[in-house]
Design a protein around this nucleic acid. Structure first.
Lengths: 208, 208
DNA sequence: CGCAAGTTTGCGTGCCACGCACTTTCCGGT
DNA sequence: ACCGGAAAGTGCGTGGCACGCAAACTTGCG
């Protein structure tokens, strides 16, 4: 999914993925220019130089195309957590991993408000956006589960923590969007994550 | 919205609300019978005895109609929290309020797996379902904010807690759905909520 | 070099959201 | 009891979308 693994990718797959990305990028670009509700399937296809019918081989709705780039962050967030040292407490690892992922995504700079507003703020995309967030949850839950070796209900716990953390991040984004003069995204995100105390999770047992 | 306030409701409004509910109920019923993807707008309209065009005056998608009944729980959940004694710690009030709301909704019995699976499990409805959950978040955040009188960033905190708690409940539902032989919904829900430790919230003074 | 699998494309079908104008209903004031 | 008019229901037309199907084309691989 991440395209960082070039080895097992056939040439055909490569081209297909490129088309998919181009469609997603074009969809997002058009949404930025004229608003998501004014983006026609034909426009996206035309922008990429592909038949409208082909577009439907990749996405089954305009919303899905616009949010598709967002989906790629799922694996990134999970990798962000896995990159944290094994000894780090889960709560800190989660915060540092996620914040680090965002930094890697934005190059350390403040996210582009226009882009975020379109993807996360447009009512038309809300459903699809939330749906894409559940993919992040799923990936993150797996990474969390790896840190909860011997817990009784590792399954439920990891999924709940992932969902809570993602929900906190999403809320932070909303809040940051609504307060343009407020704290930088960094700070809002950290504070929001601090509210979903994951202290309860590290309690059961841990080995060094 | 909640229909519990009969006083300021004109007769017209009453009928309109009845139609809306009838449409939602019919949509859900049809989705249960034949699966959400086999529900046509005309069927819903016909089941209620109304013109298809009229249906579109109430809902702008089949998904929205099917999930509409779920939306009514937003106010219920918020009320569930407000009904808790003022002295109760927030964490406990949240758990007890939500669990109590579910009980009130199911009459204390186990939720109907078929219904829950259709609403919360059908891929086609996933986006709309998650969207409806954000309404619950919003309502719950307000109720939470009322309990956080003097906190510095009551706004962000209440919204994060609401989102985290709703996310935990949703995860509990997913988990309960996937494990038919597992613990009753009650227990899964309580356990899931216990993982999103809200201990951090009751201590207003925290480093920023 | 040629085949077979995979990909793109055009077309047709069923479905849907919604603006507009018209009809029906019925609330509220006199 | 009556009536004016707003609100709700309805029919129709338009623009748009998802997807099955089958033909044309591309390309990896033997």
């Amino acid at each position: 999914m991440t395209a960082q693994e070039g080895a097992p990718l056939g040439l055909r797959e490569r081209k297909k993925l490129a088309t998919r990305r181009a469609l997603g990028r074009a969809a997002l670009l058009l949404a930025l220019e004229r608003g998501p509700e004014n983006v026609r399937v034909d426009d996206i296809a035309a922008a990429v130089g592909v038949a409208p019918r082909t577009y439907n081989n990749y996405f089954s709705s305009v919303e899905e195309a616009i949010c598709s780039l967002n989906v790629e962050r799922a694996a990134q967030v999970a990798a962000g957590l896995r990159a944290r040292p094994a000894g780090e407490p889960l709560a800190e690892a989660l915060v540092n991993g996620i914040v680090g992922t965002v930094d890697g995504y934005t190059g350390g700079a403040e996210p582009d408000r226009a882009v975020v507003r379109v993807i996360a703020g447009a009512p038309m995309l809300r459903g699809e956006f939330l749906k894409s967030m559940t993919l992040v949850e799923r990936a993150l839950a797996e990474a969390i589960a790896e840190r909860l070796e011997a817990a009784a209900d590792r399954e439920l716990m990891s999924r709940v923590l992932a969902a809570a953390v993602v929900a906190a991040a999403r809320t932070a984004t909303d809040h940051w969007l609504e307060n343009p003069a407020g704290a930088p995204y960094h700070a809002v995100l950290r504070r929001a994550l601090s509210f979903v105390g994951t202290e309860a999770a590290v309690a059961p047992e841990r080995d060094g």
